[in-house]
Design a protein around this nucleic acid. Sequence first.
DNA 1: TTATTAAATGAACGCTGTTCAATTAAGAGT
DNA 2: ACTCTTAATTGAACAGCGTTCATTTAATAA
Lengths: 200, 200
Amino acid sequence: MARRSDHSREELREMAITAAEQIVVEQGYEGLSARKVATAIGYTVGTLYLVFENLDDLILHINARTLDRLHAHMNESQLHCGDASDCLLQLGQVYIRFADEDPHRWAMVFEHRFSEDQVVPVWFQEKIARMFALVEKGLEPLAEQHTRDEITQASRALWGGVHGICILALAGNLGVAGVDSVQDLTKTLITNYLKGFTNN
Amino acid sequence: MARRSDHSREELREMAITAAEQIVVEQGYEGLSARKVATAIGYTVGTLYLVFENLDDLILHINARTLDRLHAHMNESQLHCGDASDCLLQLGQVYIRFADEDPHRWAMVFEHRFSEDQVVPVWFQEKIARMFALVEKGLEPLAEQHTRDEITQASRALWGGVHGICILALAGNLGVAGVDSVQDLTKTLITNYLKGFTNN
DNA sequence: TTATTAAATGAACGCTGTTCAATTAAGAGT
DNA sequence: ACTCTTAATTGAACAGCGTTCATTTAATAA
């Protein structure tokens, strides 16, 4: 059926996402454009729009991959990590390191605002939820006297916190320089929070 | 000396900033453009560039005003606020309420990424620092056994945390809806953090 | 060899930030 | 009053953006 298809639709999507990721890594979100991606994969703009709804759609898929990698790192860190609070600290460290080492892709996940009519698909929301689930799981052993809801609440508060430090620090708004200082801040937050959370 | 000056340079800047604020409030950061601002004040694009270096420069001044208002609210909340931990809770509530009531202007302060060669002026950094100073001041009464550095560190961690909850919640990434839930999360974070911070 | 049809193109539209030669008009000098 | 000077203001121009879609191209089926 297919005509002049050097690549299938799926291959094209794959190529486009990969090329776009490269551009984001090198030039940041600002440097990304439909024409650049098209050129990079040896096609023209029009083709890109046969395979993606629009740029937001492409970005969504890049972000999905970033979240997958982030989740893999976080998950991996939980396999061998000592006691419960060590595990949560690990989780924080991994999060910060990831953001520091791949700032452009990380930033795009959390800073890109999709146009209002663009609905965030469920499968994407689940990738975010999965991250919080890891935190929740890490909190469980420390929360014998807490309800399920309290644990959920705590995981959101704690991870919101880690995320906030990460964002402010990378934007240079925390008056700290270097990853190590950010790691220290995260440790401060998690440690103190856990102390309060457990000593009820 | 001046020719055809219906408005002085300073008046022009004032008008432009005010008009731009209005656009951001109504249409968000995405809706802001040099031509729109120029039209709104009855001038053309060229004039805007006589009075601002570029769009980033204009945005910086809008953000400065937003930070001033935020600081005023936060500061005001500290005048009559009970004991030390109540005061810090107040600070958090005010921060969240501000972001919720003026999301577009608040978001622009923390989400707009200035072009790399644009140096963030010291007077602007000071407006950020001033906010953290308020938190630091709020922490002091609770930190008799802590050093100055520890208090600074704690204020950054805690406020990074509040900020993170705020960002994630407003972006819809925390699985919570409504300001009240965000306020609850903030309370959770601050309360537990303070418990850990004080019970050393 | 031709007809069919999906794949791919690229010009076009309306927008963006930014620049700067050209125009306009207010005040000074006569 | 008229001209000259000069600062204020304009708006066309440039290169880029996201997005659309009539047109062209080429691989297959007949």
